[in-house]
Design a protein around this nucleic acid. Structure first.
Length: 417
RNA sequence: GGGGGAGUGUCCCGAGCGGCAAAGGGGGCGGACUGUAAAUCCGCUGGCUAUGCCUUCGCAGGUUCGAGUCCUGCCUCCCCCA
């Protein structure tokens, strides 16, 4: 890889964000001498962003930090179509109301990463529904459609794979790549946007936009993609048993978010520190050099930094402290997740099976039974052996709570109210 | 339109002579070992008021003491012919 002269590309490169860049020298020169505007597209199929969105969002953040202007493009229009890339089945289509609601809540999450506004290199949030929804079909075909070769489109992986595997690919989905190319063109017109970034699977789509821009507007546009992130042991990143790791504190608490990063595999710590925190590289190098179990210190730093980015430093430190008391001191931490139980019910005795379900770490009493059988459930750090056991006021600790645990990592407090 | 094939445990893939809560994987969860890691090994992986009861094999009926398995109709997908 070339060594970049611009802060922007140099930073991305040295932190491991770059997979492919089109015309790297030209882009580097542009970024060095002036302000570049770039965008990344996000779909709005969910009401929150998750860990998988973190990497592209960090790219936007670094962009802004190095003096350039980021655009977060919300796919309010394209979400109505669905990207076929890498999927065998069509995405379910969402209603406009759903899409708009999702947009609203996602907007708030973005505000934590980027400074939005109207001046200098303030970030812009655009929504492609603004231009896609009002498209006139005939005009679009004539102005844009003529530049796309079906022959060529059929060779793109996203299409080819679907066809080879004999899976359905509707015309609607087939158009996705055209719309995405059009987005690039439109953002170029509206904001002078010249660079589109995205995951490596977006390369083909981005190139389409570049071609369209050259043909229609005579613009020189650029592509930059980031590598696909998997864990050292090959699993997809950001998935846990409970599903996606959301960035919304109402969906995944700061404590759980901290825990997610704390449990990073050894082999990923260095890479993740570079990608998901803003610590200087020298410091990361020091942390990565730690051997054996000392690497746990690096994981804590990763967890706290990553959590601070999304939930604020205060929440991050609180999560760190809670983890320290719970795991390292074996003591009871007040800030563990908790749920309430009525005092009267507790006096009558709450069955451990039901309590486990209420605590949220098992989904049925049957599962609770199984966990007890294999020694996975603890009350106040004592393994439960009898599934008929009941919790009573006697089990309350001095702090007035009962600590329920599943396995070694999941702890929930029952509070009597 | 004609001929052939497929749809299985609501995470996925996939076996299944009429006795089936249904083989085997993957994934996940728990246990052991560790360092809240990985790898490895062991156990579990429909629900419930639980030595029993209830609900599951595309959908709806039927045959049978008994149906994932046989029959009929329907839906969806794929292949070949038109």
């Amino acid at each position: 890889m070339a060594t970049y002269k611009s802060d922007f590309l140099h930073t991305l490169e040295s932190r491991g964000f770059i997979h492919q860049v089109s015309e790297p020298e030209v882009l580097d020169q542009l970024a060095k001498t002036g302000q570049v505007t770039a965008y990344i597209g996000y779909d709005c199929t969910a009401a929150s962003l998750h860990v998988g969105h973190l990497l592209p969002t960090m790219m936007l953040r670094w962009m802004q930090k190095t003096g350039h202007r980021p655009i977060a493009l919300m796919g309010g229009g394209t979400t109505r179509v669905g990207d076929p890339s890498g999927k065998d089945e069509s995405r379910r289509l969402l209603t406009d109301e759903q899409i708009n609601e999702n947009l609203k809540s996602i907007r708030q999450i973005f505000a934590r990463f980027l400074k939005f506004g109207d001046s200098g290199n303030d970030a812009v949030m655009a929504n492609n529904a603004d231009w896609l929804n009002t498209l006139n079909y005939i005009d679009f075909l004539r102005d844009v459609g003529r530049h796309f070769s079906i022959n060529r489109m059929l060779t793109f992986d996203s299409v080819k794979l679907r066809l080879e595997r004999q899976h359905e690919l509707s015309f609607l989905e087939f158009n996705y790549m055209i719309l995405q190319a059009y987005d690039f063109l439109e953002l170029n017109k509206r904001y002078g946007c010249r660079l589109q970034m995205g995951g490596s699977d977006q390369w083909g789509n981005i190139i389409n936009g570049i071609d369209l821009g050259r043909r229609v507007a005579g613009a020189q546009l650029f592509a930059l993609t980031s590598p696909l992130i998997t864990t050292a042991s090959g699993a997809k990143m950001g998935k846990t048993a409970a599903g996606a790791v959301w960035l919304d504190p109402n969906l995944v608490s700061p404590y759980d978010y901290w825990q997610f990063w704390r449990n990073t595999e050894d082999g990923d710590v260095g890479r993740f520190l570079k990608l998901f925190t803003e610590l200087p590289l020298e410091e990361i190098a020091k942390l990565t050099a730690l051997k054996g179990s000392e690497i746990n210190e690096a994981k804590k730093v990763l967890a706290t930094e990553a959590t601070a980015m999304v939930h604020g430093r205060e929440e991050a430190l609180k999560a760190e402290a809670t983890a320290r008391t719970t795991f390292e001191e074996g003591a009871l931490a007040e800030n563990l997740p908790s749920f309430d139980a009525k005092k009267s019910e507790l006096e009558a005795g709450i069955g451990i099976l039901n309590a486990s379900v209420q605590a949220g770490f098992v989904s049925s009493t049957s599962e609770a039974r199984r966990q007890i059988k294999s020694g996975g459930i603890k009350v106040n750090d004592v393994t439960v052996t009898d599934e008929k056991m009941t919790l009573t006021p006697k089990d309350l600790t001095q702090e007035g709570v009962i600590k329920l645990s599943l396995g070694k990592k999941k702890h929930v407090l029952l509070r009597a109210v």
